[in-house]
Design a protein around this nucleic acid. Structure first.
Lengths: 346, 346
DNA sequence: CAATATTGAGAAAAGGGTTTTCCATTGAGG
DNA sequence: CCTCAATGGAAAACCCTTTTCTCAATATTG
């Protein structure tokens, strides 16, 4: 595939019968020359398999064509989709991505950060497992631009997050649309910003009196919540919106064990669209996808613009979530009708 | 943290009152000078926060202090632990890692590979989601060293894999040790190399007549397998070793739904130690951990040696798996005794 | 005491291949 | 014949660290 001796622009120039200066200009579409010369050089370069040495290029341009992705999400559930998006947005531009997992270790973070800065990265994307938790390292006075994706940065930073409110609103609205009347939101710890954003949106649609249960982000909590709801005196819900897919899976399993039919008797919606959980649930979960890959793509685009010196308006950009329909919700007829309407509207 | 203007070795030299040559030698512990001078330079460098420019350094040394990690494991279940290990082994040496997810797209793979080669990576680690599946790109004639981790490479390559046979042997032996007599292996498609390795080891311990059921890598297959085993005429097993944690979870769920007690009536062991599945199963899964992080660390160490020009014996290195005890297996008393013996032996 | 060896430190070049600047040549038109 | 535009080339710039080579100063030896 690649050969031991790399082709240099010098070789291209020699074979094409021009100087390296002309070759360079031809390949970069700069300078002036006959179209014929430019074409010939390009063809020669392609024929020889010439690829400019990025390191040498970095000398004259002020760019290394390299960016760093810093994350504290060890398990990678959130980071990987973001990373995939970033990568996708940048690989065409010849930009490569350093991935640094720093957990919550400040010393480790500094080690990675320094290593990246030493390598003259053109920019850094910070990402995490939780929108409202900062990374254990200060990125605010670096000499390179920083974009925060799915993690909190300083107020004057460029930040990308999912629109939790909108996602929760759509999910709740969906439950209402398919005829569910008694809605409950089973979610994670109150201390999470995304939890209150989602709960707020849920209440805005389901009514301020609608019940919200807080617990851990686990399947176990889903089981427990169903026990509470079914053993208590309050009217039992026929629509349950969960704070994440793990809780939703716990909820669905618990309902099945009680002989409650999902989606016949109760509709359940999750959050995250964590494929491995959502698809394995019986029935598979209808859930809210945060479009993390799109967040990654956007982060990639933005860091690129910043690296090129273009101005980017600071502030928080919310990207919309998307409801992914599977079988835990039912109401297919109504769903179909609504989708039809939606199509006509657009 | 970092300042707009980077400190160069020139600044260190000026402040310390020496030449750049002396400064360089002092900081790299080369050359000759009084210990006092060396110390003074080092202190000055530390005080100024000097960090050598890796790119400039790469010019004189033949190394970029950068390696590439190529993976086709989009979901990252296998890649992330490997990546964590690689990173851990290399960050102290100031080596950063480009992560490239290439799915199974040859064109994308080439794009990423070229981008990395353009950036003069010191080496490449190839990793995947399946030991016996090659990446869709040929890495065999590159000008940089390559280490294969958890994916198949050419025969003369340096390859690291988990010891599936040993892992399966330990798991099966464990079931036997705690008194289980009728053992079954419920695993993935026969076409996987790891499946036959594990099945072979299972049979070696459980007896050549022991049943092995092949299916998909899913929870659904776990349910289905239990249905087959319990509805059939053959004697029902009291010990089930599963090919991965998802199957094991399906098995455990199916048994619970049939009123079979795990681990009271039947012991179940999984494979992968995929935390999110193993810990959420009720009861939590005893399972085989492939030590992927250690594979990553070893891959990092090896690629470093190769990058430094040291010779590394080619061939396949098998790293041992480790049985992780949770509650799906039972036999705690026996387990405790056996562990005691193991301790005495060692 | 002279001759040689050793030590400490600096000046300058190398290291890399691309890009960019500026200049030279050619041919056409006035 | 002179000027100008168009094309392409020679050489410097780019960046900062490392390394080599040299030299002066001091120590050691005969």
């Amino acid at each position: 595939m690649s050969k031991a001796e790399r082709i240099r622009i010098y070789d291209v120039a020699r074979v094409a019968g021009v100087s390296v200066a002309t070759a360079s200009k031809a390949l970069n579409d700069t300078g002036r020359m006959t179209e014929e010369t430019r074409k010939r050089v390009k063809q020669t370069a392609a024929a020889l398999g010439f690829r400019p040495n990025a390191m040498a290029r970095a000398l004259t341009q002020q760019r290394s064509f390299t960016i760093g992705l810093l994350t504290n999400d060890t398990y990678g559930r959130f980071t990987l989709p973001v990373m995939a998006g970033v990568s996708e947005a940048l690989v065409d531009q010849g930009v490569s991505v350093f991935l640094c997992g720093i957990e919550d270790d400040a010393a480790l973070a500094k080690l990675h950060l320094d290593a990246m800065l030493d390598k003259q990265v053109d920019g850094i994307i910070a990402t995490g497992k939780r929108i409202d938790r900062r990374l254990p390292v200060d990125l605010s006075h670096l000499s390179v631009p920083v974009v925060y994706a799915f993690t909190e940065g300083p107020d004057d930073a460029v930040t990308l997050v999912s629109d939790d409110g909108q996602g929760a609103r759509e999910a709740t609205q969906w439950l209402a649309n398919i005829g569910r009347r008694t809605l409950v939101h089973v979610t994670g710890p109150e201390s999470f910003a995304s939890v209150s954003a989602r709960a707020g949106a849920f209440r805005a649609v389901a009514g301020q009196g609608a019940q919200v249960l807080h617990g851990s982000w686990s399947e176990a909590w889903g089981h427990e919540a169903i026990a509470k709801l079914w053993n208590g005196d309050a009217p039992r819900p026929d629509g349950i919106f969960c704070g994440n897919d793990q809780i939703a899976r716990g909820v669905v399993d618990a309902l099945r064990e009680r002989g409650v039919d999902v989606p016949g008797d109760v509709s359940v919606i999750g959050f995250d669209n964590w494929e491995i959980v959502a698809a394995a649930t019986r029935p598979p979960l209808t859930t809210v996808d945060m479009n993390l890959k799109e967040i990654g793509r956007e982060a990639g685009r933005l860091i690129l613009e910043l690296a090129e010196g273009k101005p980017v308006e600071p502030g928080i950009r919310k990207l919309p979530c998307k409801l992914v329909l599977r079988q835990s919700c039912g109401g297919d007829a109504i769903a179909a009708r609504n989708q039809g309407e939606a199509l006509q509207e657009s």
